[in-house]
Amino acid sequence: MSQADETQLDESAPPQELRLLYAIGRLDRGITRELHHGLKPLGLSPHQYATLTVLRARSGLSNAQLARRAYVSPQAMIQVLSSLHADGLITRNPSDENQRILEIRLTDKGVAITEECDRIADEIENRMLTGVPPKERKALLAAVRACVQRINAGLPGN
């Protein structure tokens, strides 16, 4: 086997040029893994936590609206909501405007567990950004927010 072949097989060898898309994808997977691990003692998944945070920001959303905001399919959202409802973290009541639409709201227990999840997410974020000065953190967030907006992936402007 030639030196070039060995380098191609050696996964520890640095790529010739790291694509930003690849690095962001790896970061996304790493964050999801850390959230899974951190939320597991609370009996929640990252999708459930995302749903709780969306509901905290805007209560009374329908299943379809929630699915769009949490970037899951409506079918997956049905499962997420069923488990959150069974755990007493949300309520689902008919809308005053349309009785066929169930509006979803956090319960007091849901608010409390979301705050616990926030502490876990804060720890992950702080660990991830160790050594990055506050000014650079702010610039990084602004750059990521702009990228997300440019590809219409959410995160409305300030």
Rank of each mutant, 00 (worst) to 15 (best):
A146V: 07
H47W: 06
K40G: 03
P15E: 01
P94D: 05
V148Q: 09
R119I: 02
G131V: 04
A146P: 03
P74D: 04
T32N: 10
D28I: 05
G131T: 04
D87G: 11
L52K: 01
N98C: 09
P134C: 00
S95C: 05
L52D: 06
R92W: 02
G25D: 11
T114K: 05
G131F: 09
E123S: 12
V54Q: 01
L140S: 12
R56G: 14
I120T: 12
R100W: 11
L84A: 07
L141Q: 11
L21M: 05
L102I: 02
I78E: 07
Q48H: 03
L155N: 08
L21K: 09
N63D: 07
V80P: 04
I78K: 14
E97A: 02
E34G: 01
A70D: 08
Y71H: 14
G88H: 06
Y22V: 12
T32F: 09
R68N: 08
E136I: 13
D118P: 00
C147T: 10
K40H: 14
E123A: 15
Q16Y: 10
R100Q: 12
L27V: 08
N63R: 14
P133G: 07
E34C: 00
E97K: 09
L129I: 07
R19G: 05
G110V: 00
V80H: 05
L35W: 05
L140D: 05
L141M: 09
T91N: 12
S59M: 07
L55N: 07
N126V: 02
Y71K: 09
R145I: 07
S73C: 07
Q65S: 14
T130I: 03
A143Q: 11
L44R: 00
R19P: 01
A139Q: 11
L81K: 09
